[in-house]
Design a binder for these strands. Structure first.
Lengths: 165, 165
DNA sequence: CTTTGCATGTAACATGTTACATGATTCA
DNA sequence: TGAATCATGTAACATGTTACATGCAAAG
């Protein structure tokens, strides 16, 4: 889905697909290197992607159809694995002060993320691409959640007694 | 880490460990069935857990030490896989109205989650367990993020033109 | 002329899920 | 007595990551 989607936006080499996924979808999706090339090979064999004269991969009409099909499948719920919350839950077994440190780190990361999203938001808004509305929606999701983490961290730092485990 | 942590809270059978993880840690952690039993076997072989006379697993002093060690390891960043945002990003290839539907579904789920968290929050606050502060912090995280999803969904529904792909 | 980035791929490894198999106990 | 829940485990399968191997091109 991610590979076909990336190619639906623009033609690219396998390397380029990976860059698109890392840079553009990076905030909400990832694909490892070892999956992209085999996937492209399969897609090509199935006639869902072809090659341009310059050697780039290019999505075919059948590929576009398949993409729509894939996107229409129900969203499968993600299984959570939040290492921060797991540690916080068992914080009584953590060395003194470490729980607090973890929350501070999360706060700092949220601040950085927030700044990054702000830049992307401005960029997308300026571009006026036909898909800008949807792209903006994904960025706004990131902003809301980064802000939530920031608010939570600040609230939690007030609530957790200083120097506590 | 999750299995040792669960046993640090109370003795349990393998089945019970799974229940603890599903019910108590469920909002931020999961372990599949096929992992818990092999893990328990390894932990027992390593002397990190033992058995009570009633057959339940019980964490040993060495196990507690190991738990602290594990919890002290750096939080490894999770690789994102957000099916909702992926679909939204490529929404121009989605059938008409489906993007809107996805956001509405997310909003409804966030509302349900929020109500659930509220109940848990009240419950934890009432218990006055020594770890209540930390447990509350994890619940508050869920509340902040569910609220973020709710706010985002409402904002997005206003921004996305009606009946749009 | 050498380092960085572009480009392609594979194979070994690690992780994680599902389905199956089995049986005891409890409750209606 | 039959269904649901408790309880334990394994084996096949699916998924996903890392390290390795290779080579070209551009920039400094």
């Amino acid at each position: 889905m991610a590979v076909l989607g990336a190619l639906a936006v623009e033609d690219a080499t396998g390397y380029g697909v990976r860059q698109s996924i890392t840079e553009t979808l990076g905030h909400f999706w990832h694909e490892s290197f070892g999956q992209i090339y085999p996937t492209l090979a399969t897609l090509e064999a199935d006639g869902l992607v072809g090659r341009t004269p310059t050697g780039k991969f290019s999505i075919t009409p059948a590929g576009v159809e398949r993409l729509t099909e894939l996107l229409s499948e129900p969203v499968e719920p993600t299984r959570p694995r939040n290492g921060l919350l797991l540690r916080l839950f068992f914080a009584s077994h953590l060395p003194d002060g470490m729980a607090r440190q973890l929350v501070q780190d999360a706060r700092d990361q949220a601040r950085v993320a927030l700044a990054g999203y702000g830049a992307i938001e401005a960029e997308v808004a300026a571009e006026s691409h036909p898909d800008a509305d949807h792209w903006l929606a994904t960025v706004r999701f990131g902003i809301h959640h980064a802000q939530a983490t920031l608010d939570w961290a600040q609230e939690t730092l007030v609530r957790l007694p200083d120097g506590e485990g």
